[in-house]
Design a protein around this nucleic acid. Structure first.
Lengths: 130, 130
DNA sequence: TTCCTTGCAAATCGTTTGCATAATG
DNA sequence: CATTATGCAAACGATTTGCAAGGAA
């Protein structure tokens, strides 16, 4: 299963690096299609999964039913606006310690955690006032 | 949209209260069907969603693609075994403070967080040794 | 009688897969 | 040449929905 170069994979990764809003596979597809109208949705899904598997991008499951993808693979937390659905990065310290807290009274091994925050984003908060 | 009594909804809720393993809609369907073979999957989905909306049960999105349901609506955390896929409750203190940590440098309002832990459960850890 | 709820089946949504063909190493 | 990747379309699993019929208030 040696990896071979593919123009499509390159395009997908490049596109993802320009975006900081954690797009879904469908959004990636619609955009990459502008540069290569022949690309298929299946190829987009295959490459997003592959890139996520080899750790070049991150797959986010935020509970809205569809996966989001992030070219930023450094550990960081996300915020989802319950009003507009936008996803944004949070600048905050690591919460690794909560894994220890969780493992304190647990009969097994805890390897990690998944956490995301929700609420109202700055934009939506503004328009509420109007 | 006043709620009317329904035998099916009652059965679904009753069944869920007997289980502590956070079953999926399909598992609920298969079990409730034993008492009422005529019940339809759609009814199960409709009632699980309804009960979750009015807060009588909790819907868990654990990133495995299918929703799980929990009759215990008190705030608590969950653990998912990456080996066997089982879901269990964690006895641990509240992590409300992380919401404040996340909100410290954020231009919006954070209402809450979703956190779940993953790793190897006690059972799977045992069988690994064998 | 009014309106909620059901059973059933068809529809939808996000994602995966089989297969013949094209591109890479 | 051996192998991996692609486009396309069909297949999938989970969930939702339209609709006519049934049950609760």
């Amino acid at each position: 299963m040696a990896l071979k170069y593919s123009r499509q994979r390159e395009m997908i990764k490049d596109f993802l690096m320009t975006r900081h809003d954690h797009p879904t596979a469908d959004i990636v597809y619609m955009n990459v299609r502008r540069q290569n109208p022949n690309i298929s949705l299946g190829t987009v899904y295959r490459n997003l999964s592959l890139l996520a598997d080899i750790g070049e991008i991150q797959r986010l499951r935020l509970g809205d039913g569809t996966d989001h993808f992030d070219a930023d693979t450094s550990p960081h937390y996300h915020f989802i606006c319950t009003k507009c659905g936008c996803v944004m990065d949070l600048k905050m310290e690591s919460l690794e310690s909560i894994t220890d807290i969780a493992g304190a009274d647990f009969d097994g091994t805890i390897d990690g955690h998944v956490t995301y925050f929700y609420g109202t984003c700055g934009e939506c908060a503004k328009s509420e006032v109007l």
